[in-house]
């Protein structure tokens, strides 16, 4: 199958757009690479080469000995698995030749990130951290203190994220608020061991997804993506601990290292 120059350029744009969406919504590097290549090949390129780096992707398509290369910057738009699923579905449909380049582009353009109801998320995160307090051996008082602290921290996190604040500032602020609320549990001696609530209430701020993605990227050969994600997750964890330490110093309650 021979492509005209315009067709090849269009194909490259469609493939890089799919890769960009995956990159921005937190897919692992192997998935970004494979899906972009599969869409390109399904639309008729002879070969697709791409380089995934932490803030951009570069892609080259080959057809009849001609190369078209393009680069896209990828800004982090938050982890969204629904977008990853949709791009994957479009990729599978293109491979079965149900869609041509124009359909793929139209469908990719139409995708809008789905978000769960924010109050439902707050409620579930509150109960999640409360469950962690149960795993740490907390009693009923610790359970409810953790629930309140985690829910308030989650509301703050959503508000700051909505206003596009820096993630490090966001996480430090949320950790500060959660620890301050649970410190009052310690001061007023809620239950047997209120320190457990201090440990459990900040677990909503663990950067679990970047950490798992980081290790699996490195395992599958994308060392520099893995390092970038690892450093990002570590910095987030450091800003959370600075938030916790700031709160403990201010309120004068220590729950972690003593």
């Amino acid at each position: 199958m021979s492509l005209s120059k315009e067709e090849q350029t269009e194909l490259t744009r469609v493939a890089v757009f799919a890769g960009q969406i995956l990159h921005q919504h937190g897919a692992e590097s192997r998935l970004i690479e494979q899906t972009t290549q599969r869409i390109g090949l399904a639309l008729g390129a002879d070969n697709i080469e791409l380089s995934v780096s932490p803030d951009a992707i570069v892609i080259t398509s080959l057809s009849d000995g001609h190369c078209v290369t393009t680069t896209r910057r990828c800004f982090d738009r938050g982890i969204n698995m629904q977008m990853v699923c949709e791009v994957q579905r479009i990729c599978v449909m293109a491979e079965k030749q149900l869609l041509d380049a124009r359909d793929v582009k139209k469908r990719l353009k139409r995708l809008t990130p789905f978000k769960h109801n924010r109050w439902l998320v707050v409620l579930m995160i509150g109960f999640s951290c409360a469950s962690f307090s149960h795993f740490f051996g907390g009693d009923r008082a610790a359970y409810w203190v953790t629930f309140v602290a985690a829910a308030v921290a989650m509301i703050l996190r959503q508000e700051l994220a909505h206003r596009h604040h820096n993630p490090f500032v966001n996480f430090a602020a949320a950790a500060f608020v959660a620890t301050t609320i649970t410190s009052f549990g310690v001061i007023f001696e809620a239950g047997e061991n209120p320190q457990i609530a201090m440990a459990a209430s900040v677990l909503l701020l663990v950067p679990g997804f970047p950490l798992i993605n980081s290790v699996s990227d490195m395992l599958k050969g994308h060392i520099n993506m893995g390092i970038a994600r690892w450093v990002f997750a570590t910095l987030l964890a450091i800003s959370v601990s600075i938030g916790i330490v700031a709160s403990m110093t201010l309120v004068g309650v220590s729950g972690w290292t003593s």
């Binding site: 982890i79 698995m81 990130p113 978000k115 998320v121 579930m124 995160i125 109960f127 999640s128 409360a130």
Partner: peptide, 16 residues
Amino acid sequence: FAWIPAVGFAMVFNVP
């Protein structure tokens, strides 16, 4: 107690 955090964090990651 384990299914609750799994679903809670899945909702943060916007799993369908």
